[in-house]
């Protein structure tokens, strides 16, 4: 709502200090002569401090993302560091991801069996578990575990490097720290998460096979025939593609929180914590968008 003359009543000094417009959360009066154009915004429409800081944070994150893409394709390429990060992020995460994926497949199968028996479709258990794991549960659970392990470790590592001046030391040693630390980690996360999701899916299905055989007898060949026979490219490809985005989000948020870590050791803890929280939320948001896109493309 725009007004040319000020309504009577109160306004804080802080509010009318801006030159050409005013955002006020109450009533306006005693405006300076210079302030000819102003906007009166009712209190319920006034952006709160936390909302403003959220928008500012989003802006900084977008700039950080833009910087990543601009640095990503320019030499010098940090191939050795990228491979080292692939080893740390991918290979060293495998035991944890493998264990959780195995338990997930086993438990899911044991939980589903009673319901399927009630409907008289127990024979469909491998197919159902297979679709559930490959399409949704596998990528999302693996990505969440990945966010917990890798997101926090990147956030804490870069955060502590920042507060102990290691990032500055890199810069004076002729190294672009953004490229060496951020680009390599984000790329390694993006590449390694889909690999971990594929391996996690396979281990999870093996867990499911054992789950099926706890209370019944199904041969290994029959189980896999049922699983693979009921999967289509429409199940596998979208899940595979979205796991790249999950990996990118985890790597980027971990690096972003760590790289801009402040307030000493307390800030390091906060960076690690917020890296996990934000990337977990982003994983669900990306999943939501991915489902909509898959639906539009008719892959469901």
């Amino acid at each position: 709502m725009k007004s040319k003359s000020p309504p009577a009543n109160n306004i804080s000094e802080r509010t009318y200090r801006t030159k050409n417009y005013i955002i006020a959360s109450g009533y306006i009066s005693d405006l300076p002569v210079a302030a000819t154009n102003y906007y009166y915004i009712p209190e319920f429409m006034t952006p709160s401090r936390s909302w403003q800081s959220f928008l500012e944070e989003t802006g900084v994150l977008l700039r950080f993302t833009g910087r990543f893409f601009s640095q990503c394709f320019r030499p010098r390429y940090e191939i050795a560091e990228f491979l080292r990060q692939c080893f740390i992020i991918g290979y060293r995460s495998l035991p944890l991801i493998g264990l959780t994926a195995f338990i997930m497949g086993l438990v899911l199968t044991m939980q589903l069996r009673p319901s399927l028996i009630d409907y008289g479709v127990e024979s469909q258990l491998p197919a159902m578990v297979g679709i559930a794991i490959v399409r949704e549960i596998g990528p999302v659970i693996v990505a969440l575990i990945f966010a917990g392990k890798i997101g926090s470790s990147i956030g804490a590592e870069l955060g502590s490097m920042k507060v102990t001046e290691q990032i500055d030391a890199m810069e004076v040693s002729g190294t672009n720290p953004f490229k060496y630390l951020v680009v390599t980690r984000v790329l390694a996360s993006t590449v390694m998460l889909p690999v971990l999701v594929m391996l996690g899916d396979a281990i999870s299905l093996y867990g499911s096979f054992l789950g099926v055989n706890i209370r019944g007898t199904t041969s290994f060949d029959l189980f896999w025939n049922q699983v693979l026979g009921n999967l289509s490219f429409g199940d596998v490809i979208p899940a595979f593609v979205k796991s790249f985005f999950f990996g990118f989000a985890v790597g980027l948020i971990g690096c972003y929180r760590g790289y801009y870590s402040t307030k000493g050791t307390e800030g390091v803890g906060r960076s690690a914590n917020s890296a996990v929280v934000i990337s977990s939320v982003l994983i669900f948001l990306i999943d939501l968008v991915a489902v909509q896109i898959t639906d539009i493309l008719g892959l469901n």
Partner: peptide, 20 residues
Amino acid sequence: LDKIRVRIGFLFQSNALYDS
């Protein structure tokens, strides 16, 4: 800047040794 930094040493307050 990188070329000139070869000729300047910087000892950081926190040592800034790479932990890894």
